[in-house]
């Protein structure tokens, strides 16, 4: 069985390779697929990427959710953490996955613009995702890369059960920024 894991990427050559042959999950949507799809979502700010994976069947799903939960009627399930997780679980079950085997990874929930209101939205996205996955569905969160002040790109390689993450922040002169501790500290690496 292939276990789900998260890998942070900094090498430009690997990033270039990971960008190839991807299926993009747009903001406010999710995709369910079986091996060997390579799902990707780009430029996560305070939105949160939810990855679900069944190691036995190699069925996986990636969502790019904007908000914790709907206030009124649900226009699009992928837009909200609560409804996205529900739709992903049901969809994965429909292609043979078992909820007992599902594992999760969370990425995103950054606070790029330094406003109190922003912190509240990104923090709520993270909190609600944790609560829904673990308390409502009993799905363990294997790893996460959340919070901080930087944008993130995500590629989910279903065949390997690997979630690749890299940061989009730059210095003013275009240098890449290296991040530690979930994006809270960073330094230029040239």
């Amino acid at each position: 069985m292939t276990e789900l894991r998260l890998i942070k990427v900094t090498e430009s050559s690997l990033i270039a390779e990971l960008r190839k042959n991807t299926i993009t999950v747009n903001i406010g949507s999710y995709i369910i697929s079986k091996n060997p799809a390579r799902l990707a979502t780009w430029a996560l700010g305070s939105c949160i990427a939810i990855v679900l994976f069944d190691p036995l069947t190699s069925a996986g799903s990636l969502a790019h959710a904007l908000l914790p939960q709907p206030r009124h009627e649900v226009d699009s399930p992928g837009k909200y953490v609560t409804t996205a997780v529900h739709a992903m679980v049901r969809g994965l079950q429909s292609i043979g996955a078992s909820i007992r085997r599902l594992r999760a990874v969370l990425v995103g929930g950054a606070n790029i613009l330094d406003f109190a209101k922003n912190i509240s939205v990104s923090t709520r996205n993270i909190q609600v995702a944790r609560e829904v996955l673990t308390l409502k569905y009993g799905i363990p969160i294997i790893d996460e890369d959340v919070g901080g002040k930087v944008g993130r790109n995500v590629v989910f390689e279903i065949s390997k059960g690997v979630v690749y993450v890299w940061y989009t922040a730059r210095s003013l002169f275009g240098n890449k920024i290296n991040i530690s501790h979930g994006g809270n500290k960073f330094w230029s690496v040239g």
Binding site: I27, L44, L67
Partner: peptide
């Protein structure tokens, strides 16, 4: 802030969409 414009827009959309 220096980042991908889409990530910044993502932040703005999340903040104000509702």
């Amino acid at each position: 802030v220096i980042d991908n414009f889409m990530a910044i827009l993502d932040n703005i959309v999340t903040l104000y969409i509702m």
